[in-house]
């Protein structure tokens, strides 16, 4: 039965289910419990994660399975990778995806490549949960959306959920998956409420979700931008234009077919993503459609992304940095206008 819970509670539930089912699932990260070594907090937490996502898990599973780590990302992310290839199924939290800069080697050159380099003999079932996303006024080193970089690395799987229900089902799948998965959580979505089934369910990786159907224009949104796309779709609908909103949910694997089928139906494609535009998932999807769906298109593909700049601190600039409904709408109107007059 569904009930309404937040994105962050949904993520916690997935971890709780996975840990209850399998004793090999352990959790680690900076202050995932908090208060490690504090006498009065032995089996209790000080924080339960910097934004409270792992709250309650140390009480339920104990400090043996919920490990506070030092601020040593290369150390504990690497340890999680290798614990995974030797019998555990760790879920390691890397607080902000920006800190990937500190520990990238352990994923890029180690975890991602084990299976291939070692001739298919090794499994590395590690999940790295990490926060991304702008809009939190957290400035250049705490606001990036770095999933395109990871998507480009063979051997890593990449998940970017947009709703509480998706987050839970996808995270459970990610934890149970035998490959390394990087699970991106938009910190500005944590309080988003939505209907989420109780108990266990899984959503396969590589299966996009149609968040709205329509026949006039396809809008692919990534993560939080799915919601921006839905707002635009509502607006367009009032003008008699029906947008189809596609949420890929996982970027690696990517559900090429759903995207192509949607464009075949609508003949127009906008991709909305808040990561930087160069070598991005937006351009990756654009290239896919240009390559395999060119004949479906009635207008050039539009990518609405962040600009090629770091994330600014000042709220006025940060708001401009993010894709906005206005930017998407004007792209849509331009495409529709263009195609309507030429058809």
């Amino acid at each position: 039965m569904g009930r309404t819970i937040s994105f962050s509670e949904a993520i916690r539930e997935a971890m709780e289910v996975a840990m209850s089912k399998n004793p090999d699932v352990i959790l680690m990260g900076e202050d995932v419990a908090g208060g490690g070594g504090v006498d009065h907090l032995q089996d209790d937490e000080a924080w339960g994660g910097v934004l409270g996502v792992t709250k309650g898990l140390v009480k339920k599973f104990g400090r043996k399975r919920v490990l506070d780590t030092p601020i040593s990302e290369a150390g504990y992310i690497g340890a999680a990778v290798s614990a995974a290839s030797t019998g555990l199924r760790p879920v390691a939290e890397l607080m902000f995806n920006d800190f990937m800069g500190v520990c990238f080697d352990q994923l890029l050159n180690q975890g991602a490549k084990f299976r291939y380099m070692f001739g298919g003999k090794v499994k590395t079932p590690v999940t790295i949960r990490t926060m991304h996303g702008a809009g939190f006024r957290a400035a250049a080193q705490h606001s990036q959306s770095l999933y395109p970089m990871f998507t480009s690395v063979p051997g890593l799987k990449v998940v970017v959920p947009s709703t509480p229900a998706d987050a839970k089902g996808l995270l459970l799948t990610a934890i149970e998956d035998d490959d390394p998965v990087i699970f991106f959580e938009d910190k500005t979505l944590y309080n988003l409420k939505g209907e989420v089934p109780e108990g266990e369910y899984r959503i396969p990786l590589g299966q996009a979700d149609m968040k709205r159907t329509g026949s006039d224009i396809t809008i692919v949104g990534i993560g939080k931008q799915v919601h921006t796309a839905l707002k635009v779709a509502d607006h367009l609908s009032k003008q008699g234009v029906e947008a189809e909103v596609v949420d890929p949910r996982s970027l690696s694997p990517l559900d090429n077919q759903t995207i192509l089928q949607s464009v075949e139906k609508t003949s127009r494609l906008i991709i909305v993503d808040e990561s930087n535009p160069r070598c991005s998932i937006a351009r990756d999807i654009a290239a896919l459609v240009a390559d395999q769906g060119f004949d479906y298109l009635d207008a050039p593909i539009k990518c609405i992304t962040a600009p090629h700049t770091p994330v600014p601190f000042s709220p006025t600039l940060e708001d401009l940095y993010l894709p906005s409904t206005e930017k998407i709408l004007s792209a849509a109107e331009e495409m529709i206008g263009e195609t309507l007059t030429t058809v």
């Binding site: 006024r137 080193q141 000042s314």
Partner: peptide
């Protein structure tokens, strides 16, 4: 986050820098 800030409001609390004073930057990365 104002334009008159030491970093034009682009950096914020965690990224204040003033090279003329030899202050090479606060840092968001531990």
């Amino acid at each position: 986050g104002r334009a008159t800030g030491l970093c034009k409001g682009k950096g914020g609390s965690m990224h204040i820098a003033d090279f003329e004073k030899g202050m090479l930057g606060a840092n968001g990365i531990v």
